[in-house]
Simulated assay, not measured.
Amino acid sequence: MTGRPQVRAQASTQASIDPPRFMPSNARNQAQTTSVSPASRRDRWLRLASLLVFVLVWQIGALIADNHTLPTPAAVLARIWDEVASMALPGHLAVTLGRVVVAFTAAMLIGALVGMAMGRWRQCDAFFDAWLVLGLNIPALVTIILCYVWFGLNDWAAILAVAINKIPTVIVTVREGARAVDPKLLDVARAYRLSRRTTFLRVYLPQLVPYLMAAARSGLSLIWKIVLVVELLGRSDGVGFQLNVFFQFFDITGILAYTLAFAAVVLTVEAWMLRPLERRLTRWRG
C-alpha cells in the first residue's frame, strides 16, 4: 500500500523537473530558436572580429612596407569612393555581375540535368564519363582562348567559356547526390501512387538540395575567378578589364579597390542569399 504513493510522488517530482516530452509546435520552434540564437550571435561576433584582425594586419603591413607597394586601408577606401562617385566602379561591376549570373544559371541548369541523368542511369554514366573526365582536366585558359578564336571577342563567347568550365564540376556533385538518393523513399512514393511530378518535387529533389547548394557555392567561387580572366583576355569592360588597365599602370591602389568591391559583393551574396536559401530548403531535415 505504501509503494504506490511513493511511486506517484516520484513521478510527479520527475515531471516537475523534466520538460514535457510533447509540446506544441510553436513552443518547440520557439525553444529551438532560443537555443540557436546565442550561437548565431557568437558567430556574427567572430566574423566581425576576423574582419577587424584582417584590417589590422593590413594596416601594420602597410606601415612597414612602402605605400606604393601596399596602400593603407584608408587609401583604398578613398579610392573606392572616388571610383563610385565617377560611376566607373558600378558600371564595370554591373557588367561583370551580368556575365556571372548568365553563366552561373546556364552551368547549374545543364550540369544538374546531366548529373541527375548520370546518377540515375548507369548507361548514361558510362557514356558521358570520358567526356566528364576530359572537361574536368582541360585548363580554363585553353577553353577561353578557343571560345574567343571560334566565336569572336564577344559576350556570348565569354559566357560560353565560363559555363563550359563550370558544368563538369556541377555534374560531378549532382551525380553523387543522385546516387545517394534513398530508394526506399521512392518505393514509398510508388506505393502511394504519387505522380512523377509530385515524386520528383517532394521526394527526389529535396534529397538533392544539399548537393545542389554545394555545387552552387563552389560554382560561384569558380565562376567569379574565370569571369575576371575572360574579361582580362578579351573584353573591353568589366572588373577584369579594369584590373588589366591598373596592372599596366602599376596602380596597386586601384587593383585593391576593385578587388575589395568585388569581394564585398561575393560576401554579400553568400551571407544574404546562399546561406538563408540553404537553411530554408534544408529545414525539413531538422
Results as ranks from 00 to 15, higher is better:
M1N: 12
P5C: 06
R8S: 09
Q14M: 08
S16P: 03
P19R: 15
P20T: 08
P20I: 01
P24C: 06
A27Y: 07
R28H: 07
Q30E: 07
A31Q: 15
S35R: 15
A39H: 10
S40L: 07
S40E: 09
R42F: 04
A49F: 11
A49E: 10
V53W: 10
F54K: 09
V55W: 09
V55L: 14
V55Y: 13
V57W: 13
G61T: 11
L70Q: 12
L70A: 07
P71F: 08
V76Q: 13
A78Q: 14
W81S: 14
W81I: 10
W81R: 15
E83A: 10
P90H: 08
V95L: 09
V101T: 15
V101W: 13
T105M: 08
A107E: 06
A107W: 02
L109Q: 11
I110F: 10
G111C: 07
V114W: 04
V114A: 03
G119Q: 00
C124S: 13
C124I: 01
D125I: 00
D125F: 02
F127W: 14
D129K: 00
L132P: 06
V133L: 12
G135P: 04
G135Q: 00
G135A: 00
N137G: 07
P139H: 02
A140F: 01
T143P: 02
C147V: 02
Y148T: 01
G152E: 00
D155F: 02
A158V: 00
I159A: 01
V162F: 02
A163R: 00
V170C: 05
I171A: 00
I171C: 00
R175K: 11
E176L: 07
A180C: 04
D182H: 07
P183G: 02
P183E: 01
P183F: 03
R190C: 03
A191T: 14
A191S: 13
Y192M: 10
R193Q: 12
S195M: 06
T198W: 08
L201N: 13
Y204P: 05
P206S: 02
P210F: 01
Y211P: 03
Y211V: 00
A214Q: 14
A214G: 12
A214K: 11
I223H: 08
K225G: 05
I226M: 04
V227W: 06
V227E: 05
V229Y: 09
V230N: 15
E231G: 07
L233N: 10
V239A: 04
V239M: 06
G240C: 05
G240D: 06
L243S: 08
N244H: 11
V245E: 15
F247K: 15
Q248N: 11
Q248M: 05
I252E: 12
G254Q: 13
L260F: 10
A261K: 15
V266A: 15
T268P: 03
E270C: 04
E270T: 02
E270G: 04
W272N: 14
P276R: 10
R279A: 08
R280K: 11
L281V: 05
